[in-house]
Amino acid sequence: MDEAKKGVLAMVAACCIWGLSSLYYKLLSHVPPLEVLSHRTLWSLVFFSAVLLVQGRLGLVGALFSRPRALGLVAMAALFISTNWFFFIYSIQIGRAVEASLGYYIFPLVAVMLGFVFLGERHSAAKWVAVVLAALAVAGLTWGLGAAPWVSLVLAATFGLYGLIKRGVDAGPVVSVTTEVLLLAPLALIWLWGVHVQGWTGLTGRSLGAFGADWGDSLLLMASGPLTATPLILFSFASKRVSFATVGLVQYLNPTLQFLVATLAFREPFTPWHAMAFGLIWTALLLYSGESLRQDRAARRASVSSVTEATTRT
């Protein structure tokens, strides 16, 4: 099997794990989201650190702490990814998995806006039409349901800002994410100390301190580490072996699986207003993907032409 095929398979595997992860978090719906998030942070740190230790790259995490600008960017990234994780867990627990899937469908179109505003990127008319369709979808859903799909908007915005910040971090994805969860670990430890030792109840009023009280819950919480780390490692492997356009297209498998789980497994309501919004978003993504593929092919043709021209001159 060639490297490109391995990359596509790794990307599909990563998206399947992400897309089906809502089933896992549903099993922990009786555990308050901040507690789940704290365990996800700590067990991710354990797993990522073990991976880097085996690879002999754990020292790269320490090197980031000697670079204030990079560390500041990683800290900001940690803030956005932890917010994203929290709201995804929370959305599953409160029965808004459909909205969560919509958020990850919207994300590429949010990225277009962020690239324009913060990076000065110039986009084609097709991509701007896609952004307008996404805005119409959100506006229509807000009108129809009488409330904005805030879960979708928060997930799309936080993930978009996370990706924007990560562009400026000069470190590999595993190293940077390990540093992110390392920075978040003290907050997670403080929360779990309050839960288990001080009897904090949080905003939910539910009984807290699941870890150690039930072996099934304890194992599930520990599994959050490899569940978080494995798809990221697969994604990193894939992104080095396939084109950016292919990565973008395969990524839609994630929200599609989330959507199917929400509607078929969780039996969440899917109203005509949802159908309208998703229809517009899917149309927007078709435009966006088609344009991305066209640009990718044009860039490859230009690259081949330049190499051919250089060879002819020599």
Rank of each mutant, 00 (worst) to 15 (best):
S101M: 09
L183V: 12
L183S: 08
L79S: 10
W150P: 07
L71E: 11
M76T: 13
L27H: 13
A302V: 05
L73M: 08
A137V: 06
V242E: 00
N84R: 03
L79W: 07
T204R: 11
L60I: 10
A223D: 11
G62L: 07
S224M: 06
L280F: 01
R206S: 13
G72V: 00
D214W: 08
R122Y: 05
A148F: 03
V151R: 04
T41D: 06
A134I: 08
P33N: 14
Q93R: 11
L161Y: 06
L145M: 14
L71W: 14
D214K: 07
M222K: 03
R301W: 13
V36A: 02
R69I: 01
T179A: 15
G103V: 02
P226T: 01
L42V: 10
G115K: 02
F244C: 09
L192G: 01
E35S: 04
E291S: 09
F237N: 08
V261H: 05
V8Q: 08
A210P: 00
A185T: 08
L53W: 15
R241Q: 11
A210L: 09
M222W: 09
K166M: 09
E35K: 04
G59A: 13
F211E: 06
L79Q: 08
I165M: 02
I89G: 04
L280M: 09
P186D: 12
A275S: 11
